[in-house]
């Protein structure tokens, strides 16, 4: 049974033929579109390494069937930097040493962007940690991650104010 799925990934439309409905969004991104920035950690929704924005909301791409999301808009780590300029969350992760090995980092960054957009945590470290609890970091860079998310929250709010002014 052949079926196709059309997804807009990082603002670029893709139509992918699937010969099997078992393909997850994670596997489609990595194996079919060669977007390997999104990582496969546990593949069971427990580690957050595969976090993407699906129609603007952060989700675990390992637990989403691609075929079920025909027409969706997806953002991955590859779509963040514009030209040579890093996304504010990427810049904050570097400034705060918010990683060591880096494997969880794309998921952490996509999750942080989702968190900031949700607007529930603000600059409260406890709320940031709670809001980021779906992303495990086995190197234990949580302190830097929390600091980076708070700084990015602040800098993005300032940017938004400047744009509005």
């Amino acid at each position: 049974m052949s079926m196709s799925v059309t997804l807009t990934v990082n603002r670029v439309p893709h139509t992918v033929q699937l010969d099997d409905p078992r393909v997850t969004l994670l596997d489609l991104l990595r194996e079919r579109l060669d977007l390997t920035g999104t990582k496969k950690g546990c593949d069971r929704g427990q580690c957050g390494a595969c976090t993407i924005l699906l129609d603007g909301r952060r989700v675990n791409s390992c637990l989403a069937l691609a075929i079920s999301h025909d027409g969706a808009e997806i953002q991955t780590i590859e779509g963040l930097a514009e030209g040579g300029a890093l996304h504010p969350v990427q810049a904050a992760f570097i400034a705060h040493d918010a990683f060591q090995c880096g494997f969880c980092t794309p998921g952490q960054i996509m999750s942080a962007i989702g968190l900031i957009d949700e607007g529930q945590a603000g600059e409260d470290p406890e709320r940031v940690r709670e809001g980021m609890s779906g992303n495990l970091c086995r190197c234990g860079a949580y302190r830097g991650i929390t600091e980076a998310v708070i700084e990015a929250t602040r800098s993005m709010a300032e940017d938004a104010q400047e744009k509005a002014a």
């Binding site: 952060r58 989700v59 675990n60």
Partner: peptide, 9 residues
């Protein structure tokens, strides 16, 4: 319950 990612889905 769960994580923010799971609650979104």
């Amino acid at each position: 319950g769960a994580s923010a990612q799971l609650r979104n889905a």
